[in-house]
Design a protein around this nucleic acid. Structure first.
Lengths: 206, 206
DNA sequence: GTCTATAGGACGATAGAC
DNA sequence: GTCTATCGTCCTATAGAC
């Protein structure tokens, strides 16, 4: 990951209009929305809270988004787009299969506990707040992301490096890694993101 | 687990008034509340929904519980009490350390995906809906439960059977196992609870 | 693109009869 | 212990001026 220019990836996604520029009005609102949705939950966050966080009145919000739910959906969609691109880049730099798996674990831990952590938590905890139609759209985006994982795990299975079913391994890892957001505090405690990645791989029979 | 009489444990907890009798008015309400809170979320579940689920009017609810939040707290408290007792019994029947770990994994998967699954999901996903004072009370109860896990994992570490830090292994397992509620469907697919337990242990380096 | 003002409805909780 | 009726509050979203 140290050799991937994460900012270059972000800039190219902004240029393609796949994610909002964090400096734009829309981008700033989505950033604040992610924080509020994670901290208070989607239902307990009011449009007044959202508007106040970017310094406007609640009525003005509806000039940018038609409904409150559209804001939640935008947070999720842009987060998946960004993280899929980051993960793809991280994996391509890895050589062996084992290194690829490590790169995936490291990148997902970084997504969950780094800059996009608030939005990733929203993706997990506020899933039910999304309408069924929106859920279907977001799920379609996730398929690419999950495909990266499954491809690596299936190859590890084929060469005999893992015993369990690849899709089950992926689901267990999804739960284990996303749960870190509830307890991992890099600032106090001394465990770095690389150290945490080491621990995950030390638990696994590889 | 096959030799533990789960119903006997439940009956003794009812006798000690640590959990409500599922046949009582209070017990039936808590069961319906767990289902509604899991399906729609705490915030989106109204007191009118809760009352309708047990066939009374919304005003009548407040004869049994002072506030809506008190219902959420009761669901969580009684669920932890029951599952701590079940897990304790499951572990005592196991011989070796490795068998104890398997018993813990099996028991937690059963809590999450069996009868108390709805309430266990509420415990994870609706945690933020609880006031800070209530959170502290429920956390105190969880300490016993977590102590059972840590004791086994630390012994496994001492004998060299696991490489990673016990408390990190437990947290990864918490995430992985609780996440199964989002995808594991025993009815279709053929994977039994024992099969799922096998997969979890097959992923781990033991 | 932001403001003020408010429509229109849903919510948690209470009061008092039975 | 349940009912009916309703209070007071908060919510999302809209309307129209600037």
């Amino acid at each position: 990951m140290a050799f991937v220019n994460q900012n270059e990836i972000l800039q190219s996604l902004i240029a393609e209009q796949l994610v909002s520029d964090p400096a734009s009005a829309r981008g700033r609102l989505l950033k604040e929305a992610a924080r509020l949705f994670r901290d208070k939950g989607y239902e307990r966050t009011t449009v007044r809270d959202l508007a106040a966080a970017v310094g406007i009145q609640s009525g003005s919000l509806f000039h940018h988004f038609r409904t409150k739910e559209e804001i939640l959906k935008a947070v999720m969609v842009e987060t998946i787009r960004l993280n899929t691109a980051l993960m793809h880049a991280a994996m391509e730099q890895a050589g062996t299969l084992r290194e690829k798996l490590r790169a995936l674990v490291r990148a997902e831990l970084e997504s969950i506990n780094g800059q996009t952590g608030e939005a990733m938590a929203v993706l997990v905890y506020e899933w039910r707040s999304l309408s069924e139609e929106s859920q279907a759209e977001v799920l379609a985006l996730r398929d690419h992301y999950e495909g990266l994982w499954l491809s690596v795990l299936e190859q590890l299975r084929t060469e005999g490096s893992i015993d369990a079913e690849p899709f089950i391994v992926r689901r267990m890892l999804t739960g284990a890694l996303s749960w870190t957001v509830t307890w991992y505090r890099p600032e106090r405690g001394g465990l770095t993101l690389d150290g945490l990645t080491d621990q995950v791989l030390a638990i696994m029979k590889l």
